[in-house]
Nucleic acid binder design. Sequence first.
DNA 1: AAGAGCACGTGATGGA
DNA 2: TCCATCACGTGCTCTT
Lengths: 274, 274
Amino acid sequence: MGDDDFFNNQIHMISFTEEKSSKDMIFQQAFFSSSSSSSSLQSNLKPCSPFPTGGYVLSFDKPVVEPLYPKKHHSPKSLAQSQYCVEPKAFPRTRPRVHILAERKRREELTKSIVALSATIPGLKKTDKVNVVREAVSYVKQLQERVKELENQKRKESMNSIILNKHRPLSINDQATHGFVDVNEELLEVKVTVLDKEVLIGIYCEKQRQRLLKILSLLDNLHLSITHTSVLPFGTSTLKITIIAQMNNEYNMTIDDLVKTLRQRILKSQDMQK
Amino acid sequence: MGDDDFFNNQIHMISFTEEKSSKDMIFQQAFFSSSSSSSSLQSNLKPCSPFPTGGYVLSFDKPVVEPLYPKKHHSPKSLAQSQYCVEPKAFPRTRPRVHILAERKRREELTKSIVALSATIPGLKKTDKVNVVREAVSYVKQLQERVKELENQKRKESMNSIILNKHRPLSINDQATHGFVDVNEELLEVKVTVLDKEVLIGIYCEKQRQRLLKILSLLDNLHLSITHTSVLPFGTSTLKITIIAQMNNEYNMTIDDLVKTLRQRILKSQDMQK
DNA sequence: AAGAGCACGTGATGGA
DNA sequence: TCCATCACGTGCTCTT
């Protein structure tokens, strides 16, 4: 669990004119599974390029030793293989150092961000860099899909109240709102609950001729015997219908199917009315 | 869209002498805004390390020219600065090359994955690598939170059917289920819908003495005048109560508050019954 | 001994 | 000019 500790256990030397940089790298080094200790100065030689004279040479950043890159990495071994060349002429070698530092910083920050990313994605086993990013991609897609899914469901749930607001001026300027109201955006909510052999059906819909009659016959066709009903007017143009019914032996639908077919049939009969 | 192709279009030479390889990199190079063309051979010199003799030297992979790394990048300029050193002694320089290739592949794949990641996260402006990863982190967190939020809401919605299943054997082994049933897990669902000055209240609860009476007086206290009610028995021990009421002038609650207070009061009166 | 993985220093390049 | 970003080749380590 505690995996944030191995910072600062190694102090890379100071080098002349500071360059503090203790506690560096390490981090992902340890995180991404690797050794831990380090600080094997390992020679700071590097190829010195920009010479029109041809001839590729090496040099320190300064004509002096300069332990500039203290953080190489992985301690053991080496140190014996410090090899270098000396530059024939000392040059204003003050620039590359800032470059090196900047680049170091950049790299550091990339790995750090990747570590942060790996922290957000659950069930990650291979903490290797590319794998982290890849898993992140698929995880993001997965999350996006889940969100979309849930939001669609929610839309259905809260549809009635939204449509309610739309229908509020219904009786006033009925014809005036055309164009903004989708034909399929009927006000219709169906909810079904099952308990043993009984079914509780709640329907919230627009007021219409023969509304209850049609629904009851529809239920009869689906092998449901009505035992109680209640029809309550809500506002000027909507109804709340509640029905309790008994499943016959022939009945064998799932709840979802029942809801769907009820919605379909009721909507169809609504269309036919218009 | 199609982003899986530019592998294997280059046949990395079979062995030394050769190295065709044209068009590579490109991709992210173009994606992350940069130049596009490539192939500026740019000298293949490299520091040759493992020499116990000290002295840091450079060499080709072979004593011959060898255009090994054609993909350096950014075409223009350079090419004039081909500089190199010759290794004093030719060595079995056949190993590093595979390493170079592998590393190249690794790098390529990392950037590719990051590009893929950047594709999944919307509204991204700075397509810089670290920024992509960082934005990905915050985006993932954002998505996670949204999912959690939506799922909690969903839980509330579907609570009733879950509790229904728990209560199914209620009338049979009433006392026998103690210990597994939390005291607060009463069967109670309250749903409120508002239309102008009217309120539609649906309550699903356990059958109990004076249930309707208490609820109606409660609503009266909240400045709601009942216009219609319906009480339907569902199963042997539950009720579906539906109420339509008018808001009085004194009424000024939000829907959520109304639901909460209704739930609280009803649950409290239920407790007192026991 | 081979492979995978990482950080390093470096040159090139495009933008303030 | 300087600064940021990139791909590159390299040395190192750890695992198989």
